[in-house]
Design a protein around this nucleic acid. Sequence first.
DNA 1: CTGTAGACCTGGAGGC
DNA 2: TGCCTCCAGGTCTACA
Length: 271
Amino acid sequence: MPELPEVEVTRQGLIPLLKKTIIRVDVRNYSLRWPIDNNLENILKGQEILNLQRRAKYILAKFTNGTLIIHLGMSGHLCIMPLSSKVKKHDHVDFIFGNDGQLLRYTDPRRFGSILWTKNNPMDHKLLCKLGPEPLNQKFNDEYLYRILRGRQQYIKSLIMDSSIVVGIGNIYASEALFYAGIKPQRRANRLSKKEILILVKYIKEVINNAIKKGGSTMSDFFDVNGENGYFQNEHKVYGREGLSCFTCKSIIKQKRIGQRSSFFCRECQK
DNA sequence: CTGTAGACCTGGAGGC
DNA sequence: TGCCTCCAGGTCTACA
């Protein structure tokens, strides 16, 4: 489900919970991608969220004694709801806030997500310490990407989805950014010109920025923390549009499996 | 080092 | 209706 824009929209939606005290945590299922700390209930009881950050697709909730590292995997989401909300099958964790009878619920049918606790700097965590730059950071620029891609023979789409190169770009936004940049997903990275890389960087930033502004892409199950859907899916130019005609040139959008993932592109607009 | 295939898990869609 | 296969927004791990 969530790529960087959806995770960022989720983070922003959690800001009203800052400085509110957790009075209880209910973990109904500890087995996510990695097991939840079996002492999480005690660790967080009486604590308040001091700060909410995002790194790649991880939401980092800082407490006085450590940080909660949350990843939504493919199907996870967080929702702020009333205490009385009925528990459904895949509602694995509730964080219950005292002040106004609200709870934050983590739901994740496929359980590829994770909720990890660390007392240390989360940036030093095994899962975060090897991540590449944020796409919206100026460290992610054409010179950087050109240097990294030189000598790499893999498909360009696979490499912009590689989190050690640049974080946050998943299967939807990789296809979309490559469409805007006019580059076929199956081009070999080392065959891109400097100019193409400049354009690609520009559109990666633009697509991600626009998606955040539109509240992310709601495919089947992404909703923000208040249950509202995003609107960026209405602006997808190629993702999920196989067999339909290109908005730009009217030729038929193609679908092809590249590096184990479905990829969408226009043969005419992308070279 | 680079690249690839499999693994984790559930549910929905489509074919028969 | 049921069963089967394939597919899905991620990314770690093992292996060539």
